[in-house]
Nucleic acid binder design. Structure first.
Lengths: 151, 151
DNA sequence: ATCCAATATAAAATACGTACAAATTTAAAC
DNA sequence: GTTTAAATTTGTACGTATTTTATATTGGAT
């Protein structure tokens, strides 16, 4: 996603184009594979933009979610983690280190499927799959950290 | 799950059988359909056991998870919510009220399936599907609460 | 009945996120 | 380029969820 596209989106929604917003989006993009938390983004942005406030990072991430520029990937270890990939994909969450990795998987059913048990319960907007397990890195450690990070 | 079964499990792990533990598990069972949070369990237990401490509820829920008696259903609205149903099933999360409902769905693939993109990434223990949408109750309201509760 | 490790308790500490008011900045009109 | 109003950023205080700490209590083996 180029910045010009973001700028266009912001203009369309009467939102202002600020250096903070551009820099924060760039940071989420750069750290895409980490599925970064607000705190991680804050640290990353501060390097280039030392005056940035953590409150701005939180609010900007929320704004970016609301205009559909990024989305919440997962909540892991109590922290909300973000994702710039908007197409359907899923996540693999390591129970030991808390790391999140993308899972590519065709599951068209999730978008349109209506399990019988949902009948009368409501309307599905989206379905996501979360795989829990141990990542390769933690598997190879003798003493991985306690699996307390996630469920 | 009968209490005698819990007592047996606790004994096997050299964990003590305390009235708090029994009462807290009963409360989670009784509120199963709510997928209750620690706070909700605390309120429920306090009615029968006024001296109970919130810290005990937190620690006991964690213990019950670790011995495999309950599991984390979902984290919604910043709160961890628990589940006594250990068999495979999935959840429907209302983005408006934050309510969680069970979804019965055969997806054997999730347990055993290894998407190609996972190759070399690690070992899957479990796969769960989370459906996001609007529940029937919120659909029928003219002005549902803001959909800020979840992602 | 006694004893010790495990547990429960209350209170304080921590962690994540949000709300607020004051200062700054954007962008549009002139 | 200035002016100006509205939006945004910032620092900080606050709120809520959860964990830790220090002490008191208790389960259950002997």
């Amino acid at each position: 996603m180029k910045m010009s596209v973001l700028e266009e989106k912001l203009r369309q929604k009467n939102l202002k184009i600020t250096p903070q917003r551009l820099e924060i989006l760039r940071a989420v993009q750069r750290h895409q594979c980490d599925h970064p938390s607000a705190e991680l983004i804050y640290q990353a942005v501060k390097k280039r933009y030392p005056a940035v406030s953590l409150a701005t990072v939180y609010k900007t991430l929320e704004t970016l979610v609301q205009i559909g520029e990024i989305r919440v990937a997962i909540v892991s270890g109590g922290k909300t983690r973000y994702d710039t990939r908007m197409e359907q994909h899923h996540h693999f969450l390591c129970s030991y280190c808390g790391g999140v990795q993308d899972i590519e998987m065709k599951m068209d059913c999730l978008e349109t499927y209506c399990p019988e048990s949902l009948a009368g319960k409501g309307t599905i907007h989206r379905g996501e799959v979360i795989f829990h397990g141990i990542c390769h890195t933690c598997e190879n450690k003798k003493n991985p950290p306690c699996p307390s990070i996630c469920s």
